Simulated scan of single mutants.
Amino acid sequence: MGNTFVTLFWRQRLLDQAVQRLEDRDFRVVRLAAGQWSTEQDMHRAIAAALHFPDYYGHNLDALNDCLGDVACYGPYDDSEEGAGLVLAFIDYDRFAAVCPEAAHVVLDIIADRARHAAVLQRRLICLVHSNDPDIQFDPVGAMPVMWNSDEWLDANRRG
C-alpha cells in the first residue's frame, strides 16, 4: 500500500489480512458492500451512513468530495480522531464498477485526492478495493495509478 492510496485485492483472504493488520495498528476500518449497489444513489446512501455524513449531504459526487474532505482532513464525522487513520474497504467493487463505471472511477479518484490532502495534515486515509475480476483496471486516480497489492501484483498471482 506504500505506492498508492487505492490498492486492489482479488483474494478476499488477502484483503482480510490487510484489514486485520491495519486494525491491529488502530486504524478505523469501514467496510462497504459495494456489490450491493446497483445505482450511484445506493453508493451515496451507504457511504453517508457509514461515515456519518451530516443531514445536508447532497448525495452527489461533489458533495461526496466535500464531506470526505472533512472526514479525511478534519475528522468531524470520523469517531476515531485519535486513531491511526481511516480505511475504506470496498467489497465486490467490480459489481458497482460494472453498473456505474464513471461514478466508480470518480469515487476512487476523490478518495485518492482526499488521502493526499490528509497526508499533508499528517492524517491517513487508505482505500482497499476488492474485485472478483482479476483483470479489472482503473485509470489513474489522484494522479496515481490504482495498483494491485504486493501479493497479487503479477497477473499470474491472480489466477485460481
Rank of each mutant, 00 (worst) to 15 (best):
G2K: 06
N3K: 15
T4N: 00
V6P: 03
T7E: 05
L8P: 04
R11V: 08
R13C: 10
R13N: 13
L15Y: 03
Q17T: 11
V19G: 04
V19T: 11
Q20C: 07
L22Q: 05
E23N: 09
R25H: 14
F27Y: 14
F27G: 05
F27P: 05
V29T: 10
V30I: 15
L32W: 02
L32T: 04
L32M: 09
A33V: 12
A33G: 15
A34H: 02
Q36R: 13
W37D: 02
Q41M: 12
Q41D: 09
D42N: 07
M43F: 13
M43I: 07
M43W: 08
R45F: 11
A48H: 02
A48F: 07
A49E: 14
A49I: 09
A49S: 15
L51V: 11
L51H: 06
H52T: 15
H52Q: 13
P54Y: 05
Y56S: 15
L61Y: 08
L61S: 10
D62S: 12
A63R: 03
A63Y: 03
A63N: 11
L64M: 06
L64D: 01
L64P: 02
C67S: 14
L68W: 06
L68R: 00
L68P: 01
G69Q: 01
G69D: 02
D70K: 10
A72T: 12
P76S: 05
Y77P: 09
D78L: 04
D78M: 05
D79T: 13
S80Q: 15
E81C: 12
E81N: 15
E81S: 13
E81R: 14
E82G: 12
G83H: 01
G83A: 10
A84C: 07
A84R: 03
A84S: 15
L86Q: 05
L86M: 12
A89I: 05
F90W: 12
I91D: 12
I91L: 14
Y93T: 03
D94N: 12
R95D: 11
F96M: 01
A97V: 09
A98V: 09
A98T: 14
A98S: 13
V99C: 13
V99A: 10
V99W: 04
V99S: 07
P101T: 00
P101Q: 09
A103S: 13
A103V: 11
A103N: 03
A104K: 06
H105F: 10
V106C: 01
V107W: 03
L108T: 01
L108R: 02
L108G: 00
D109P: 06
D109S: 04
D109A: 03
I111A: 09
R114I: 02
A115W: 01
R116Q: 15
H117V: 13
A118E: 05
A119E: 14
A119W: 10
V120Y: 10
L121I: 06
L125E: 00
I126K: 09
C127T: 14
C127W: 02
C127E: 00
L128A: 02
L128R: 00
L128W: 05
H130N: 11
S131Y: 03
D133C: 04
P134F: 06
D135F: 11
Q137W: 04
Q137D: 12
F138V: 00
P140S: 00
P140D: 00
